[in-house]
Computed example of a mutant assay.
Amino acid sequence: MIAHAAPESHATPGEGPSAAMPELVDPVAVARLYGEPLFALPQDLYIPPDALEVFLEAFEGPLDLLLYLIRKQNFNILDIPMAAVTRQYLAYVEEIRSRNLELAAEYLLMAAMLIEIKSRMLLPRPVTSDTEEVEDPRAELVRRLLEYERIKLAASRIDALPLLGRDVLRAQVAIEQALAPRLPDVRTADLQQAWQEILRRARLVQRHQITREELSVREHMSLVLRRLQGKRFVEFGELFDPHKGAPVLVVTFIAILELARESLIEITQAQAFAPIWVRLAYTPS
Protein backbone atom coordinates (compact mmCIF):
# COMPACT_ATOMS: atom_id res chain seq x y z
CA MET A 1 0.00 0.00 0.00
CA ILE A 2 1.41 3.46 -0.92
CA ALA A 3 0.85 6.16 1.64
CA HIS A 4 0.30 9.66 0.41
CA ALA A 5 1.29 12.58 2.61
CA ALA A 6 -1.53 14.94 3.35
CA PRO A 7 -0.87 18.60 2.44
CA GLU A 8 -0.52 21.08 5.21
CA SER A 9 -3.52 23.14 6.02
CA HIS A 10 -4.02 26.02 8.37
CA ALA A 11 -6.93 25.62 10.74
CA THR A 12 -9.08 28.63 11.13
CA PRO A 13 -10.23 29.77 14.53
CA GLY A 14 -13.23 27.76 15.78
CA GLU A 15 -12.46 24.61 13.74
CA GLY A 16 -11.31 21.47 15.59
CA PRO A 17 -8.66 18.99 14.58
CA SER A 18 -11.22 16.72 12.85
CA ALA A 19 -12.16 19.47 10.45
CA ALA A 20 -8.54 19.94 9.47
CA MET A 21 -8.05 16.20 8.52
CA PRO A 22 -8.85 15.38 4.85
CA GLU A 23 -11.13 12.43 3.97
CA LEU A 24 -9.01 9.36 3.18
CA VAL A 25 -10.25 6.90 0.54
CA ASP A 26 -8.61 3.45 0.45
CA PRO A 27 -7.85 2.67 -3.22
CA VAL A 28 -7.61 -1.11 -2.49
CA ALA A 29 -11.22 -1.57 -1.24
CA VAL A 30 -13.40 -3.29 -3.88
CA ALA A 31 -16.71 -2.28 -2.29
CA ARG A 32 -18.31 -0.79 0.76
CA LEU A 33 -20.71 -2.69 2.96
CA TYR A 34 -22.79 -0.52 5.33
CA GLY A 35 -20.15 2.18 4.95
CA GLU A 36 -17.22 -0.10 5.77
CA PRO A 37 -14.62 -0.87 3.05
CA LEU A 38 -14.60 -4.45 1.69
CA PHE A 39 -11.11 -5.51 0.63
CA ALA A 40 -11.93 -8.93 -0.88
CA LEU A 41 -14.98 -10.76 -2.25
CA PRO A 42 -16.45 -13.32 0.19
CA GLN A 43 -15.59 -16.80 -1.00
CA ASP A 44 -18.50 -18.55 0.80
CA LEU A 45 -21.20 -16.49 -0.96
CA TYR A 46 -20.22 -17.31 -4.54
CA ILE A 47 -23.24 -18.03 -6.74
CA PRO A 48 -22.64 -19.57 -10.19
CA PRO A 49 -24.20 -17.65 -13.09
CA ASP A 50 -26.40 -20.62 -14.12
CA ALA A 51 -28.17 -20.47 -10.77
CA LEU A 52 -29.51 -17.01 -11.58
CA GLU A 53 -31.39 -18.18 -14.69
CA VAL A 54 -35.16 -18.09 -14.29
CA PHE A 55 -37.61 -19.73 -16.69
CA LEU A 56 -40.95 -17.99 -16.35
CA GLU A 57 -42.82 -20.43 -18.60
CA ALA A 58 -42.34 -24.16 -19.16
CA PHE A 59 -43.66 -25.64 -22.40
CA GLU A 60 -44.18 -29.26 -23.29
CA GLY A 61 -43.24 -28.82 -26.93
CA PRO A 62 -43.35 -26.56 -29.99
CA LEU A 63 -47.14 -26.76 -30.34
CA ASP A 64 -47.54 -25.84 -26.67
CA LEU A 65 -45.33 -22.77 -27.12
CA LEU A 66 -47.10 -21.73 -30.31
CA LEU A 67 -50.54 -22.12 -28.75
CA TYR A 68 -49.36 -20.09 -25.74
CA LEU A 69 -48.19 -17.20 -27.95
CA ILE A 70 -51.51 -17.19 -29.86
CA ARG A 71 -53.76 -17.35 -26.80
CA LYS A 72 -51.69 -14.87 -24.79
CA GLN A 73 -52.23 -12.12 -27.37
CA ASN A 74 -55.82 -13.12 -28.18
CA PHE A 75 -55.04 -13.92 -31.80
CA ASN A 76 -57.69 -15.66 -33.85
CA ILE A 77 -56.41 -19.19 -34.27
CA LEU A 78 -58.20 -19.43 -37.63
CA ASP A 79 -56.41 -16.30 -38.88
CA ILE A 80 -52.95 -16.39 -37.33
CA PRO A 81 -50.76 -13.31 -37.96
CA MET A 82 -47.73 -15.32 -39.03
CA ALA A 83 -45.23 -12.44 -38.92
CA ALA A 84 -45.82 -11.55 -35.26
CA VAL A 85 -46.09 -15.14 -34.09
CA THR A 86 -43.00 -16.25 -35.99
CA ARG A 87 -40.96 -13.36 -34.61
CA GLN A 88 -41.89 -14.12 -31.02
CA TYR A 89 -41.38 -17.85 -31.57
CA LEU A 90 -37.89 -17.36 -33.01
CA ALA A 91 -36.96 -15.11 -30.07
CA TYR A 92 -37.85 -17.88 -27.65
CA VAL A 93 -36.02 -20.50 -29.73
CA GLU A 94 -32.90 -18.33 -29.83
CA GLU A 95 -33.09 -18.01 -26.04
CA ILE A 96 -33.25 -21.75 -25.37
CA ARG A 97 -30.72 -22.59 -28.11
CA SER A 98 -28.05 -20.62 -26.27
CA ARG A 99 -28.64 -22.79 -23.18
CA ASN A 100 -29.77 -26.21 -24.37
CA LEU A 101 -29.10 -27.17 -27.97
CA GLU A 102 -30.75 -30.60 -27.67
CA LEU A 103 -33.98 -29.06 -26.37
CA ALA A 104 -33.97 -26.44 -29.14
CA ALA A 105 -33.80 -29.07 -31.95
CA GLU A 106 -37.52 -29.88 -32.01
CA TYR A 107 -38.38 -26.19 -31.68
CA LEU A 108 -36.20 -25.39 -34.70
CA LEU A 109 -38.24 -27.80 -36.81
CA MET A 110 -41.42 -25.91 -35.98
CA ALA A 111 -39.62 -22.61 -36.66
CA ALA A 112 -38.74 -23.85 -40.14
CA MET A 113 -42.40 -24.76 -40.71
CA LEU A 114 -43.52 -21.27 -39.63
CA ILE A 115 -41.02 -19.63 -41.98
CA GLU A 116 -42.21 -21.88 -44.81
CA ILE A 117 -45.84 -20.95 -44.18
CA LYS A 118 -44.96 -17.26 -44.08
CA SER A 119 -43.03 -17.61 -47.36
CA ARG A 120 -45.95 -19.38 -49.06
CA MET A 121 -48.27 -16.59 -47.92
CA LEU A 122 -45.97 -13.96 -49.50
CA LEU A 123 -45.87 -15.74 -52.84
CA PRO A 124 -48.69 -15.06 -55.30
CA ARG A 125 -51.37 -17.69 -55.30
CA PRO A 126 -51.57 -19.93 -58.36
CA VAL A 127 -54.25 -19.19 -60.90
CA THR A 128 -57.11 -21.71 -60.63
CA SER A 129 -60.65 -22.03 -61.85
CA ASP A 130 -63.42 -20.24 -60.04
CA THR A 131 -64.87 -23.47 -58.61
CA GLU A 132 -61.61 -24.67 -57.11
CA GLU A 133 -60.61 -23.11 -53.79
CA VAL A 134 -56.94 -22.74 -52.87
CA GLU A 135 -56.16 -24.06 -49.41
CA ASP A 136 -54.75 -21.60 -46.92
CA PRO A 137 -51.08 -22.42 -46.13
CA ARG A 138 -51.96 -22.10 -42.43
CA ALA A 139 -54.73 -24.73 -42.58
CA GLU A 140 -52.59 -27.73 -41.59
CA LEU A 141 -51.01 -25.80 -38.71
CA VAL A 142 -54.45 -24.65 -37.51
CA ARG A 143 -55.73 -28.25 -37.52
CA ARG A 144 -52.77 -29.41 -35.48
CA LEU A 145 -53.17 -26.57 -33.00
CA LEU A 146 -56.91 -27.16 -32.52
CA GLU A 147 -56.38 -30.88 -32.04
CA TYR A 148 -53.56 -30.27 -29.56
CA GLU A 149 -55.70 -27.75 -27.65
CA ARG A 150 -58.57 -30.27 -27.34
CA ILE A 151 -56.19 -32.94 -26.05
CA LYS A 152 -54.61 -30.48 -23.61
CA LEU A 153 -57.99 -29.39 -22.23
CA ALA A 154 -59.11 -33.01 -21.84
CA ALA A 155 -55.85 -33.83 -20.04
CA SER A 156 -56.33 -30.87 -17.68
CA ARG A 157 -59.88 -32.02 -16.87
CA ILE A 158 -58.64 -35.52 -16.15
CA ASP A 159 -55.83 -34.13 -14.01
CA ALA A 160 -58.37 -32.05 -12.04
CA LEU A 161 -60.25 -35.20 -10.99
CA PRO A 162 -59.51 -36.40 -7.45
CA LEU A 163 -56.56 -38.77 -7.50
CA LEU A 164 -55.98 -41.43 -4.88
CA GLY A 165 -52.78 -40.66 -3.02
CA ARG A 166 -52.62 -37.06 -4.25
CA ASP A 167 -55.99 -35.50 -3.38
CA VAL A 168 -57.70 -38.18 -1.32
CA LEU A 169 -56.55 -41.01 0.88
CA ARG A 170 -58.23 -44.35 1.36
CA ALA A 171 -59.71 -44.59 4.84
CA GLN A 172 -58.91 -47.83 6.59
CA VAL A 173 -60.61 -48.76 9.83
CA ALA A 174 -60.04 -52.02 11.62
CA ILE A 175 -63.28 -53.34 13.10
CA GLU A 176 -63.21 -56.31 15.38
CA GLN A 177 -66.28 -58.43 14.86
CA ALA A 178 -67.15 -60.95 17.48
CA LEU A 179 -68.14 -64.08 15.60
CA ALA A 180 -70.77 -66.30 17.15
CA PRO A 181 -69.23 -69.58 18.28
CA ARG A 182 -70.06 -72.34 15.87
CA LEU A 183 -71.10 -75.44 17.71
CA PRO A 184 -70.18 -78.79 16.19
CA ASP A 185 -72.92 -80.82 14.58
CA VAL A 186 -74.31 -83.75 16.55
CA ARG A 187 -73.47 -87.01 14.87
CA THR A 188 -75.94 -89.86 14.63
CA ALA A 189 -73.61 -92.10 16.57
CA ASP A 190 -73.50 -89.63 19.49
CA LEU A 191 -77.29 -89.41 19.54
CA GLN A 192 -77.54 -93.19 19.44
CA GLN A 193 -75.10 -93.55 22.31
CA ALA A 194 -77.04 -91.03 24.38
CA TRP A 195 -80.27 -92.92 23.71
CA GLN A 196 -78.70 -96.20 24.74
CA GLU A 197 -77.59 -94.60 27.98
CA ILE A 198 -81.18 -93.49 28.63
CA LEU A 199 -82.41 -97.03 28.04
CA ARG A 200 -79.79 -98.48 30.35
CA ARG A 201 -80.89 -96.17 33.14
CA ALA A 202 -84.51 -97.08 32.47
CA ARG A 203 -83.83 -100.80 32.88
CA LEU A 204 -82.39 -100.18 36.33
CA VAL A 205 -85.66 -98.81 37.61
CA GLN A 206 -88.14 -100.63 35.41
CA ARG A 207 -91.06 -102.51 36.97
CA HIS A 208 -92.50 -105.74 35.74
CA GLN A 209 -95.98 -104.44 35.12
CA ILE A 210 -97.88 -105.23 32.01
CA THR A 211 -100.28 -102.52 31.01
CA ARG A 212 -101.70 -101.19 27.80
CA GLU A 213 -101.28 -97.53 27.35
CA GLU A 214 -101.95 -95.31 24.35
CA LEU A 215 -99.22 -92.74 23.96
CA SER A 216 -99.46 -89.72 21.63
CA VAL A 217 -96.34 -88.40 19.91
CA ARG A 218 -97.93 -84.97 19.43
CA GLU A 219 -98.76 -84.78 23.12
CA HIS A 220 -95.19 -85.54 24.08
CA MET A 221 -93.97 -83.00 21.54
CA SER A 222 -95.98 -80.40 23.41
CA LEU A 223 -94.56 -81.63 26.71
CA VAL A 224 -91.01 -81.27 25.41
CA LEU A 225 -91.70 -77.76 24.15
CA ARG A 226 -93.11 -76.77 27.53
CA ARG A 227 -90.01 -78.17 29.23
CA LEU A 228 -87.84 -75.98 27.01
CA GLN A 229 -89.85 -72.80 27.51
CA GLY A 230 -87.94 -70.09 29.39
CA LYS A 231 -84.70 -72.07 29.41
CA ARG A 232 -81.64 -71.45 27.33
CA PHE A 233 -80.44 -75.04 27.17
CA VAL A 234 -81.69 -78.31 28.63
CA GLU A 235 -79.52 -81.39 28.76
CA PHE A 236 -80.76 -84.16 26.52
CA GLY A 237 -81.12 -86.65 29.37
CA GLU A 238 -83.27 -84.30 31.47
CA LEU A 239 -86.08 -84.53 28.93
CA PHE A 240 -86.65 -88.18 29.82
CA ASP A 241 -88.22 -89.60 32.98
CA PRO A 242 -86.90 -93.13 33.53
CA HIS A 243 -89.60 -93.83 36.14
CA LYS A 244 -92.33 -93.73 33.46
CA GLY A 245 -91.00 -96.78 31.70
CA ALA A 246 -89.52 -97.63 28.33
CA PRO A 247 -92.66 -96.93 26.22
CA VAL A 248 -92.82 -93.31 27.42
CA LEU A 249 -89.10 -92.93 26.80
CA VAL A 250 -89.49 -94.24 23.26
CA VAL A 251 -92.38 -91.88 22.52
CA THR A 252 -90.47 -88.96 24.06
CA PHE A 253 -87.44 -89.77 21.92
CA ILE A 254 -89.64 -89.94 18.79
CA ALA A 255 -91.20 -86.59 19.80
CA ILE A 256 -87.73 -85.01 20.08
CA LEU A 257 -86.75 -86.35 16.66
CA GLU A 258 -89.99 -85.04 15.17
CA LEU A 259 -89.43 -81.60 16.71
CA ALA A 260 -85.89 -81.51 15.32
CA ARG A 261 -87.17 -82.53 11.87
CA GLU A 262 -89.69 -79.70 11.93
CA SER A 263 -86.91 -77.24 13.03
CA LEU A 264 -88.77 -76.42 16.26
CA ILE A 265 -85.79 -77.35 18.45
CA GLU A 266 -82.00 -77.42 18.03
CA ILE A 267 -79.75 -80.21 19.28
CA THR A 268 -76.18 -79.00 19.91
CA GLN A 269 -72.97 -80.16 21.49
CA ALA A 270 -70.14 -77.94 22.75
CA GLN A 271 -67.41 -80.31 21.66
CA ALA A 272 -66.82 -83.92 20.84
CA PHE A 273 -67.87 -86.39 23.59
CA ALA A 274 -69.46 -83.52 25.52
CA PRO A 275 -73.05 -83.61 26.85
CA ILE A 276 -75.80 -83.03 24.29
CA TRP A 277 -78.01 -79.98 24.81
CA VAL A 278 -81.44 -79.15 23.46
CA ARG A 279 -83.00 -75.72 23.08
CA LEU A 280 -85.87 -74.03 21.27
CA ALA A 281 -85.07 -73.04 17.72
CA TYR A 282 -84.22 -69.38 17.26
CA THR A 283 -86.82 -67.47 15.28
CA PRO A 284 -85.77 -63.97 14.19
CA SER A 285 -88.29 -61.26 15.08
Rank of each mutant, 00 (worst) to 15 (best):
I96W: 00
A3C: 06
E219T: 08
L109G: 13
A174K: 07
R138H: 09
V205H: 05
A180H: 06
L33I: 06
N74G: 07
L103A: 15
G245R: 02
I117R: 03
R120I: 04
L141W: 00
A160D: 13
S222T: 00
R218Y: 07
E149H: 09
D159W: 00
F273A: 12
T268W: 03
K118N: 14
V278D: 06
P17C: 10
M113T: 03
E60R: 11
L239E: 05
R261D: 12
L239T: 07
L183P: 02
A5K: 12
A104H: 04
E53G: 09
I267R: 02
V234W: 01
E133K: 09
P48G: 11
G61H: 02
R71S: 15
E8R: 02
V224C: 11
L161I: 01
L264I: 06
L41Q: 12
R203L: 13
M221I: 05
L146D: 06
T131E: 15
I47H: 07
D167A: 13
L108A: 11
A104N: 05
E23A: 14
F273N: 13
L114V: 05
R200W: 04
R200P: 01
E94Y: 02
V168N: 08
L249P: 04
K231P: 03
G230Q: 07
V250T: 05
A29R: 14
L145H: 06
A6D: 09
A202G: 14
R99V: 02
M1N: 07
D159N: 10
A274R: 11
N100Q: 12
Y68E: 03
L109D: 12
S98V: 03
A111S: 15
R166A: 14
V93M: 03
L24R: 15
V168R: 13
P275S: 13
E135H: 01
R157N: 05
I276T: 01
F59V: 03
E116I: 00
L228I: 07
F39K: 01
L52R: 12
R232P: 05
Q269P: 01
L66R: 08
P22C: 06
E147T: 07
L69N: 10
H243G: 11
R138G: 04
R32E: 15
V28A: 14
Q271F: 06
F39C: 00
A105T: 08
K152S: 15
T283L: 09
R232H: 03
E197L: 09
R120G: 00
I117S: 05
I117Q: 01
L33K: 09
I115G: 06
G35C: 10
A178E: 11
T252R: 15
S285F: 06
F39M: 12
E219C: 03
L199M: 10
P17D: 05
L169M: 05
G35Q: 11
V25I: 13
Y46C: 03
I70F: 07
L199N: 05
E133S: 10
L280S: 13
E95F: 11
A83I: 01
